[in-house]
Design a protein around this nucleic acid. Structure first.
Length: 544
RNA sequence: GCGCCUGUAGCUCAGUUGGAUAGAGCAACUGCCUUCUAAGCAGUGGGCCGGGGGUUCGAAUCCCUCCAGGCGCGCCA
């Protein structure tokens, strides 16, 4: 839509400096299709009543082909009513080149990395991971369709204490199988799956390690265990519709010297100092609340040390923008990482952290306590099996990440049959059904004469066309805000106009010309539904 | 104590970056299948937008303050 330019040139003709022009898709039909408050914005600056300014603007715009009418309303809104011919023409454009309509090139190939899930490979995924996974994958799809060059990355915490504990927990279970006493590590993982891993090792290796101490074979137990868990995580994510382009190993940050060279670099720039036997990073100089330890007094590195190195690598990898999707319990970490990026000489604004709020799991209204260590939790896999993949994804995508989510298993199960996701999918299936029938009646769905769109004149048809035509506005808004959930709501609205239309008007009717016109409209809706669902990673079934 | 997030219909949540009369799903109630899929349609009821101040043409949205809930504040990861 080039309404913005029309207003801008009108303002030029009036000799007014154009402020940024806001356009909005109106809520009420009486307010036209598109509206701008620009006259009210200018009122203060020009010291004239907004109504007068709006009048001048409307006169300067004149009557183009694009509008049926342009009105002034309320405190000074300018409301644009699109002309039918224009709407028809735009619909035909959409149909001629859907790819061009539905996508855009806002990103211009800019490299963006989205890091998400990054669950410790010490146990199965739970529902909280699922939320991050869905948000991340949908956001990646969204940005990709907007012309960004997106990399989906999973950061694997395969170094440090947690995988060590995992290995030792498995070792302890293994010793049990050997019939030996070995005291289970205090903070060890007590889940059932630990026993499975130890059995699997016992089956492969027998009693080979029964006479050894953990220190002698820790590498084997750790690596074997976390790799098995990581494979399990990958399979589960894939089944959940989440794929990654890259798995970045924390361990390799050390083994390839990235952490050491980073600390060396920080030393040279005098960004670290020694104190109480530890090495500190001067993060307060870059906005953090306190300085942070990167090397502990026992000589070990903190998680933060490898994380600085990690983000340094990301930036050096050529990513203009880094998006990290973290659980909200990590929010205290954001400042720290930003300060590190700042210290390294880069704009900390390049890191965008999306904090996904906690998912509290309920069963019949009562909270389910979850503890990974105690091995007491409901896995993503279980929820997927019970609720279904599309429904689960949809539930996550009908909430913005900021909102705390109550996931009641019983309600979700009860609602899964009436979840709005089916409302959207059903619209798609219905249209497919129409096209199957149309094929039987001798229409060639791929060869419909576009000029027939002129026959679309019912109010509901025009509403549908406009809804479809405004998709790019919504899409761009979602991209700018990095908010895939907006797509979800739009799809529900679109389906919400289609279903009533379907039940009141027959697509395949007496008049062949009107039928062709309506098929074209259905085609357009189908294109948009399919596009939106694919962004969300939700299937678009041809039959239901 | 400090920081972050949240508070909108009975429940779960949106609200187009400050716009016009507050939105959807579920739940409740009433109707509709001999015609392209009833996972649908038509209709009814339901609100101090947590409270109080402020900013301005205009506030659910921005600022201050209070209340309530969640999560963080380690030489843990």
């Amino acid at each position: 839509m080039d309404i913005r330019n029309i207003i801008k040139s009108a303002l030029e003709r009036l000799g007014i400096d154009a402020p940024p022009i806001e356009l909005e898709v109106t809520r009420a039909e009486a307010h036209g299709d598109i509206s701008t408050p620009v006259a009210m914005v200018l009122a203060g600056q020009l010291k004239k009543p907004p109504g007068k300014i709006a009048g001048d603007i409307v006169n300067a715009i004149g009557n183009g082909e694009m509008f049926e009418k342009v009105e002034i309303a309320g405190p000074g809104f300018i409301n644009f009513f699109l002309a039918k011919d224009y709407i028809h023409k735009k619909l035909a454009d959409l149909l001629k080149d859907p790819g061009k309509f539905v996508r855009c090139d806002m990103g211009r190939g800019e490299k963006v990395q989205i890091e998400f899930v990054s669950a410790n490979p010490t146990g199965p995924l739970h529902l909280g991971h699922g939320r991050g996974a869905v948000v991340g994958s949908a956001l990646a799809n969204l940005l990709e369709n907007a012309g960004y060059n997106v990399e989906r990355e999973f950061y694997v915490n395969d170094a440090g204490r947690q995988v060590h504990l995992l290995g030792e927990s498995v070792f302890a279970r293994y010793m049990e199988l050997c019939g030996r006493d070995y005291s289970f590590p205090e903070d060890g993982y007590r889940g059932e799956y630990i026993i499975d891993i130890s059995k699997s090792i016992y089956n492969e290796e027998g009693d080979k390690y029964c006479n050894k101490g953990f220190d002698e074979c820790s590498d084997y137990f750790i690596d074997y265990s976390y790799m098995l868990m990581l494979d399990d995580i990958k399979v589960n994510l894939e089944d959940f519709g989440v794929v990654f382009d890259s798995f970045r190993s924390e361990k390799e940050l050390y083994s390839k010297g990235h952490v050491d060279s980073l600390i060396e670099f920080l030393r040279e720039k005098n960004l670290v100092y020694e104190g109480s036997g530890a090495t500190w990073f001067r993060s307060t100089e870059f906005g953090d609340d306190k300085d942070r330890v990167i090397i502990k007094s026992d000589g070990r590195y903190t998680y933060f040390a490898s994380d600085i190195a990690y983000h340094f690598l990301k930036i050096k990898g050529g990513f203009r923008e880094l998006i990290n999707i973290w659980g909200a319990d990590h929010h205290g970490y954001v400042k720290r990482v930003r300060s590190a990026i700042d210290a390294l000489g880069f704009d900390p604004g390049r890191l965008k952290v999306i904090l996904v709020q906690m998912v509290s799991l309920l069963k019949a209204g009562k909270p389910v306590q979850m503890s990974k260590r105690a091995g007491d939790f409901i896995t993503l896999r279980e929820v997927m099996n019970e609720i279904g993949r599309d429904t689960t994804r949809f539930i996550f995508l009908t909430r913005k990440p900021d909102s705390h989510l109550e996931f009641d298993l019983d309600i979700a199960k009860k609602h899964s049959a009436e979840n709005p996701v089916f409302y959207v999918q059903y619209a798609y299936a219905r249209i497919n059904s129409i096209f199957r029938k149309a094929g039987e009646e001798g229409f060639d769905p791929d060869n419909l004469e576009y000029s027939h769109v002129k026959m679309l004149s019912e109010d509901e048809e025009l509403r549908l066309i406009k809804k479809v035509l405004f998709y790019p506005i919504l899409f761009e808004g979602a991209v700018n805000a990095r908010e895939p959930h907006r797509i979800t709501y739009y799809l529900q609205e679109l389906a919400g106009i289609f279903h009533p239309y379907y039940s009141r008007h027959r697509v395949l009717g007496e008049d062949r010309n009107i039928t062709v016109a309506r098929l074209l409209l259905c085609r357009a809706i189908m294109i948009i539904l399919n596009e939106g669902l694919s962004i969300l990673g939700i299937s678009a079934p041809e039959k239901m």
